[in-house]
Amino acid sequence: MVEPRVITFREAVLEALFLEMHADPNVMLIGEDVGAAGGVFKQTEGLFKTFGATRIIDTPISEPGAFGMAIGAAMAGARPVFEVMFGDFMTLCMDQLVNQAAKVRYMSNGRASVPLVLRTTMGTGANLGPQHSQGFYAWAAHVPGLKVVVPSNPADAAGLMRAAIRDDDPVLFFEDRMLYTAKGAVEADIPLVPIGKARVLREGRDITLIGIGRMAQFALDAAKRLAADGIEAEVIDPRTLVPLDQEALLQSVRKTHRAIVIDGAPRSYGVTGEIASIINEDAFDWLDAPVMRLGAADTPVPISRTLEPLWRPDAARIEKAVWTLLS
């Protein structure tokens, strides 16, 4: 183990990319403005200078074709990291993602695979509006053959990015832009974080708060406020939605007997419903109250400075929900 430093989420993921690109010449980065420009959020800065234009590919604005090419490259031995600048633009890649990437292993009876990472950003808080805020991880999680990663902190993000690049299946990696400047301790050698393992961010006995991505950070904030009132909330970050570490979630609920699932995407037909169902099916006898779901509004994301903050859960709303469930 090497001494941890405190670095940002963005720096941590960038370090992971450098590490994996040095370790494996088959790793490529493909996307819009990822090369000489260093990424629209500076999330790929320096890679182009180090690895050059054959491994860092600046594409035209042609998401379907460029992503399809990343899939072909992966089938032919490369390990591409494909960047979709805004998660909303993933819709342009859906055919390639759903009909090609997700199915190649199955259709080939395990004789071919698509070792690829689709990396994209999402999240509200910068007033980017209806077409530049969405995170479609629930859609992706509904397609067998795809793995889905939604990290909440720098160390997990970096360790999971390394694991995603080494994974032999297509992995979708969702980064909340509002976390890019969040800081955390990251060991210098960036330990791998296994895909499919949840993390208990805070232990507690009274209620389980399951937060997806940035919502896990809001849940931690809420837990701190609740502690002042004597409520000890356990906060769990599933970290990966597919595969989902069901046992870690169930274990916590069996201890606390209450759960709230918190998501920053529209609530209907989303991740919260899936996780709540798993708890209901497998831990019903341990529950003292119905599993509660907190999600974003079932509306597009508004751009207005007054409306946008109302769109999704935050620490205050999580805290309020806890009191409701406990009463």
Partner: peptide
């Protein structure tokens, strides 16, 4: 099964070949 679906696959395999 997707009309045109193979086009980017071959083009992308060419990109990978160039990289190596």
């Amino acid at each position: 099964g997707i009309v045109g679906g193979g086009i980017p696959l071959a083009a992308g395999a060419a990109l990978a070949a160039r990289a190596r």
